[in-house]
């Protein structure tokens, strides 16, 4: 298979670009033939600190194939790596404010959607996908100008203000393992996968529910430069699209 891959992102309005807490991987993909593509979007929780580090670790590990198990059993190892990164950051800061250490002790939280596309043997024009998700980052598969599949949330009404998220420091009270969901299906040449953090995913589904085609607006940006995407997002916020970090991976499979 070949993929036409593009990534778009924008920090929330009123924040600095450095405060963008979503993450995605890979950053780019060339269009050479391949048998597999793994990609991920994570959305670090605003209410936790060092969630940017956590979100980046999650997508990087998933995209590189080191976060593989269906129930994400590698998470404790990742969590310990996150804790080491944070401890090093705190140790470097001799004048760290009193609140940083107790905040870090609470851990970081993130939503994650990971998508893997693979070839079917002896066929270039179709294949399979699997996906794992926790939280409200989603993908939508579009075929022949119609939405085919949305996962893990299938409607805009399913988005809530407080989704269950992946913790970097799970406690006995964290009930995330049972909330991890999986999906599997088929792709065929010409399908497009839109992998999105929650604000854009919720907008996408709500527009599609009205019988409109939100992917057409997005596809225009794939042909334009990134600044068009950013201007368009700001025009939608905060009425049509909630003010949040926004991330989009657009993957056309051929």
């Amino acid at each position: 298979m070949r993929v036409d891959f593009a990534a778009f992102w924008l920090h929330k309005d009123g924040a600095e670009p450095s405060q963008y807490e979503d993450a995605f991987a890979p950053a780019c993909v060339d269009d050479r033939p391949r048998t597999r593509l793994r990609c991920a979007v994570a959305d670090g929780a605003t209410e936790s600190a060092y969630s940017r580090i956590w979100a980046r670790q999650l997508v990087s590990e998933f995209a590189s194939g080191r976060l593989t198990a269906p129930d994400l059993t590698e998470l404790p190892l990742l969590g310990r790596r996150w804790a080491r990164s944070v401890a090093q950051a705190l140790a470097r800061n001799e004048s760290a404010a009193w609140y940083l250490e107790p905040k870090a002790a609470d851990g970081a939280f993130a939503a994650l959607i990971g998508l893997e596309l693979t070839n079917v043997a002896h066929a270039d024009d179709r294949g399979a996908y699997t996906a794992v998700a926790l939280g409200d980052s989603c993908f939508v598969q579009v075929r022949e100008d119609r939405p085919l599949r949305a996962f893990p949330l299938g409607s805009s009404a399913a988005f809530s203000a407080r989704p269950i998220l992946l913790p970097s420091r799970p406690t006995a009270a964290d009930n995330f393992a049972g909330a991890i969901s999986h999906d599997a299906g088929q792709w065929q040449s010409g399908d497009t996968f839109y992998v999105m953090s929650d604000a854009l995913a919720c907008w996408f589904l709500s527009v599609a529910e009205r019988g409109e085609r939100p992917w057409r607006a997005i596809d225009q940006f794939a042909r334009a430069d990134r600044s068009g995407f950013r201007k368009w997002i700001r025009l939608q916020q905060p009425t049509a699209l909630k003010n949040d970090d926004v991330t989009l991976l657009r993957i056309v499979v051929r």
Partner: peptide, 11 residues
């Protein structure tokens, strides 16, 4: 409340 509003760059 301070911890709730804390981020790595400050409150």
């Amino acid at each position: 409340l301070a911890i709730k509003c804390a981020k790595e760059e400050g409150i």
